[in-house]
Design a protein around this nucleic acid. Structure first.
Lengths: 346, 346
DNA sequence: TACGACTTTGTAAGCGGTTACATTCAGCTG
DNA sequence: CAGCTGAATGTAACCGCTTACAAAGTCGTA
């Protein structure tokens, strides 16, 4: 593994010059530069990022820590991941332009995740924390040591950069559509993990919006985990009730898909007998039958905004911490009872 | 940002002792250890990974480079990613136990991906390369500088650790099922990217296996990109033929889903009029109507095996490079024309 | 009490880059 | 041609941690 010293010796220059050539130039005579570049190319020199990081006090790596949801221990149900996967791609896309790389770390709640985050924090220039992947206190402590941007975290956290989506707005629009648009009165809700801020907000907003309408009731089934399986479970609970709801909203799309499939397995028609809706707008929701009415969230923008902000902080921005809320959008398809949409490729 | 020196001073010991305490002990007297730990905790010391990496010649980071497939420029079609996403989670799960972290880098082909990989190679101890994310020559060069394990790469590459799945076996089983099991004779195939080794193998194996059977023909539509949209396109091509195939196999599940939906849009029943099959066995395939018959590949094992091998190499293993082939498995659901399977939650 | 034989701790030299500062060099000017 | 100036290059300290080796304790024994 060649080092700057090797290159310097071979090119007959000092390490300073090699370094200057590497970092896009400074003042190096063209022929010197050419000579150095030739040697670099010949010996296949690649600077050691550790040494660079140490010397420049900057690692050009940011970390993303997230909870791995809806993946069960046996690894069979691999369907809960779409949200974080989308995010990862969005973040990576932004980083692509910069020299920065993305370090990933997933945890399942209950695990001793904290130690890993600690260690990880030594490897990065800044951290993206998804949901409440760590206790608020620790998050604050962390954010004193390095730039941190929270994604989809609990709104409570002040004094911290954060980006989230408008869960409440989306759910209100959805509740209006179901109650006012379709006239459903007996509503149900398949709730997500109590430790997922998004899930909590969605549940609260939907229930509040629905109950605010005269005659509307909401039968809440809490305790899902964002997975399809937990949607099925919720459906079974709802089916066991005296009065099965006319429409069931869900904490996310996977759960909605689980609800749909479980209902169908029991011979119930969706949406004719029971309407079902999700949240997220991920690919499988377009594919399921009936296509899922849902609230779309701007994954791309969510990841991009958070990443951009983090990079600014790393670059030294001292601006006031901001908590951005990105708009969500009601995506009407058929599972809510709306007629076929004639869109070309939905 | 406290350093070992700060901790040492505060605890009244030398940096060597601090270091010894950090790295799980050596021979440090219990009370000394306690004192040091107290200081570490108090000042919130986290060792700088760059300095550690430099000193220990080991960064405890491995990289994963992959092509981002089936994502179109406008970011609207976000459905081509499931394969690599699965892989990422599988790899991360293995790393979880170790102190190693995962650095991610995606490229789209055509992009100047090579430079980024070069830079990235300075940040990691080893690299996982998915598909032919880089030219064979460069891959060889890379593998001389650091441990590299290829995932789902072209079989050609000798002398390199590689893990792939048995595309051919899976496709042969599928062809047998369609031709012998169902008696289909006019077959179609929606091909994937010509630069995707998996896609090439699947196409070749399916065509060969099918054509080996008396009376069987295969109408190949090449040039897909693994996305649902490209499946739709393939379906349109197939529909324009004089004789529409009785069964269409596809390079992956997303394309199969695209084919199904496009056929349905044209009023063709699946599988009654045309059977359709995929490859991968990802979540959306379970959800689409009809549920997708496909060839399952062991994502988890694929990622795990590659990661384990890479870690061994990093640890210094000098074993002969191996090219493992993991078994695939025919997953019969309904899109091939088989009757409803009574499985509990498929 | 003195002497080994361990155990515990400290000293200081790297690890491979970057960069402030010093030095050299070439080209002008007076 | 000495002296000056700015460009090009070299020197060496430093980034923060690890670790070989040296030094200092500690203890039991002769």
């Amino acid at each position: 593994m060649p080092t700057v010293y090797d290159v310097a010796r071979l090119a007959g220059v000092s390490t300073a010059t090699v370094s200057r050539v590497m970092r896009g130039s400074d003042l190096v005579r063209p022929d010197t530069r050419a000579r150095v570049l030739a040697v670099i190319d010949e010996v296949g020199f690649v600077p050691d990022a550790s040494a660079q990081g140490l010397s420049r006090r900057r690692k050009d790596i940011i970390g993303l820590v997230a909870l791995e949801r809806g993946v069960d221990e046996t690894d069979i149900e691999r369907d809960g991941l779409l949200f974080v996967d989308q995010l990862v791609h969005a973040v990576e896309a932004v980083l692509r332009g910069t020299g920065c790389s993305l370090l990933l770390s997933f945890g399942r709640n209950g695990e001793p995740f904290q130690g890993r985050i600690r260690a990880l924090s030594g490897k990065v220039d800044g951290l993206l924390v998804v949901e409440d992947a760590m206790p608020a206190a620790q998050l604050r402590a962390l954010s004193r040591r390095l730039p941190v941007v929270a994604i989809a975290a609990s709104p409570g956290e002040g004094g911290l950069d954060a980006v989230r989506v408008d869960n409440a707005g989306g759910m209100q629009a959805l509740a209006a559509h179901l109650a006012t648009g379709h006239g459903y009165r007996r509503l149900g809700f398949a709730g997500g993990p109590p430790d997922a801020p998004d899930a909590v907000e969605r549940l609260a907003a939907f229930a509040a919006a629905a109950r605010a309408r005269p005659g509307c009731t909401v039968d809440v089934v809490p305790g899902g985990d964002f997975s399809e399986a937990s949607g099925r479970t919720a459906a079974r609970v709802l089916l066991s009730r005296e009065a099965v709801p006319e429409a069931v909203a869900c904490a996310n799309d996977q759960m909605a898909i689980g609800v749909i499939r479980e209902l169908q397995r029991s011979g119930i028609r969706v949406p004719a007998d029971v309407a079902v809706t999700g949240f997220d707008n991920i690919f499988p929701g377009r594919v399921v039958d009936p296509p899922l009415t849902t609230v779309g969230q701007p994954f791309r923008e969510l990841g991009a905004r958070a990443t951009t902000r983090l990079l600014e902080r790393i670059a030294g921005s001292e601006a006031q911490p901001r908590a951005d809320v990105l708009p969500t959008e009601l995506v009407i398809r058929r599972s809510c009872g709306c007629p076929v949409t004639p869109s070309p490729a939905t």
